[in-house]
Amino acid sequence: MGRIADAFAKAKKENRAALVIYVCAGDPDLRTTEDLVVAAAESGADVIELGVPFSDPTADGPAIQRASERSLAAGTTLAKVLDTIGAIRRRTNVPILLFGYYNPILSYGEQKLVEETAARGADGFLVVDLPPEESDGLRLPAIEKGLDFVPLIAPTSDRDRVTEAAAAATSFLYYVSMTGVTGSKATDLASASERAGALQRELNRPIAIGFGVKTKEDVTTVARHVDGVVVGSAVVRVIEEAESSAAALSAVRTLVAELAAGARRQ
């Protein structure tokens, strides 16, 4: 079992949902990203989704769009993100899922990326614009290297798509809470969580819910039904609003600790 599956299993045993925290690599700079990931892990994040910035983040709302723009303006590249993962790995064992869009991956070379990701100690990939039927070039080499491939399912996904995604998943499935982009207001997180919970029982695979999960209360709602919960835009916003890297670190510590408390089941 990989580090990500271990983290989900451990959280389940401790009667809580695994807390997945998204950080955009290179926002505001990669040195700070390294510290932010370590801080999030120390404050209760079970898995880090490390966002690789892309010029055209079509699945993301304004908060993550702005973070991507700041990161690219600061000169972030996939190669530099991999170096940062190496540096993070010397400081923490928290599982790291690379989260991003396909074009930088295609441009870097899928096989080369898989080898270097494994060598630096990251744990898997979630590529928002790569549907399962187009994913063999990345997914198969990743699986061979013991890395995870996390598929997305949406409320509009039909039966075939869900089955296909479940078959492609190696650790957990990412369930998008609503039709929309990251950071939108979740309209009915409780019923989305209920539907995802039913799916998790049926597929017998851990599901994490993301998109529109912002507060401790949101996390608690989700944690009642599924094994994992993802918070992204809310984290990115406190980093954006902080006046210094030190302030960002402190704000992220506070937020992640609060969210982690919300992930505990009573």
Partner: peptide
Amino acid sequence: VLQTADGQI
């Protein structure tokens, strides 16, 4: 597509 060496559009 028009892109940088790093795959940014």
